[in-house]
């Protein structure tokens, strides 16, 4: 087990994770990050074309490990 830090944000606000989550490997990091991205999307995604939300994972040395992101596209069709 090692501690990973899941920074989360959208364009306006990035919050650094100061607590971290213990994970047993990259697969778990990915699962934990994905669950976080779903909650973040529900909370922070507004009806704004082009908005991005993301989770960026650091290890204990501060090295970047993984990034998961979603972006919203709104297109008027008529």
């Amino acid at each position: 087990m090692a501690r990973f830090f899941f920074d989360t944000g959208d364009r306006d606000l990035v919050l650094l994770d100061e607590i971290g989550v213990e994970c047993g490997g990259l697969e778990e990091v990915r699962r934990v990050g994905f669950e976080g991205l779903i909650d973040l999307t529900r909370d922070a995604l507004k009806s704004v074309d082009g908005q991005k939300v993301f989770v960026e994972v650091r290890d204990e040395n501060g090295d970047k490990v993984l990034r998961l992101s979603l972006s919203l596209q709104i297109m008027l069709m008529r």
Binding site: T8, L15, D17, E18, I19, V32, G36, D39, L40
Partner: peptide, 10 residues
Amino acid sequence: STVHVNRMLQ
């Protein structure tokens, strides 16, 4: 999720 718990505390 744990990640969102951390974000909310933050």
